[in-house]
Design a protein around this nucleic acid. Structure first.
Lengths: 138, 138
DNA sequence: CATAACTGTTACTAACATAGTCACAGTATA
DNA sequence: TATACTGTGACTATGTTAGTAACAGTTATG
């Protein structure tokens, strides 16, 4: 634990929704597949729903399903929806005034992070949920 | 805390070593710049040393310095040296036998992770320590 | 209308990774 | 011989995260 796996879990959930075409999938059913509690699944679904990737209904026959076709959803969409961690994280600390390195490294690191993040996101954008589901069926 | 920032700290340390060309930099001095303890800096230096990126001497005049020129060190070298976290992490859980998604999603996710990781590492490999130091001087 | 079964959300707990500290043996210099 | 480093192991504190419990709100159904 204590390591962020929400992105992977979100892809798992989305793949399950894409695999089952019916509109009768509940958080309880998804929870069985991911091996967690319905409540946790609903929290992930909530983010995906707010991002417009899934649609849900409440009430007795409550359920959820993909809001778009799997081929029109990229892993980047899911990555952004769950606000997954960046490519790497920069340490925070008080600048040590007399030290030029201490004062300027942060900006240099942020520039490097931006570049790296872009490369990573571009690749995620090329992978569709449909291709994940297709891989899964093999 | 509780979020892995060793890569950023390692780049900070390496940039400081590249900035100071002398061979008299101690872990205590680096610790001042990073605002942490000499001991923690030495643990990071230990990894960088094992990866052949820095050289160190023990004894009273103990110190450390870059093993190569900054222009010949990429951020990927540093990333690998400190064994920084992957682009994203995959959840682990017992497969639910009757569920095809549960049984096959992991392999599909690993394939996606490999692609994403490659893209990220390729970008890191294009950024040299020298360029970080140059950015820092602006 | 009453019941059942779901969602959506909040509050909480437990587990765990990480930064950070302390301590000390080993080593080189003066 | 004293000093001042490195290198490493053991430990602690802290913050993030998964996971759980609980409950109000909502809708289908008898």
């Amino acid at each position: 634990m204590a390591v962020n796996t929400q992105f992977a879990i979100a892809v798992h959930v989305m793949a399950a929704l894409g695999y089952r075409c019916d509109k009768d999938t509940t958080s309880g059913l998804l929870a069985l597949s991911v091996n967690t509690s319905p409540s946790f699944v609903r929290r992930v679904l909530s983010k995906l729903s707010k991002a417009g990737l899934v649609e849900t209904t409440t009430g007795k026959a409550g359920a959820c399903w993909l809001a778009k076709e799997a081929k029109n959803i990229s892993l980047l969409d899911i990555y952004r929806a769950v606000d997954a961690p960046k490519a790497f994280s920069i340490h925070t600390y008080p600048e040590q005034k007399p030290c030029a390195v201490s004062c300027n490294i942060k900006a240099a690191l942020e520039k490097a992070l931006t570049k790296t993040q872009k490369a990573m996101e571009a690749r995620l954008d090329e992978i569709t949920l449909a291709s994940i589901i297709s891989d899964m069926k093999k």
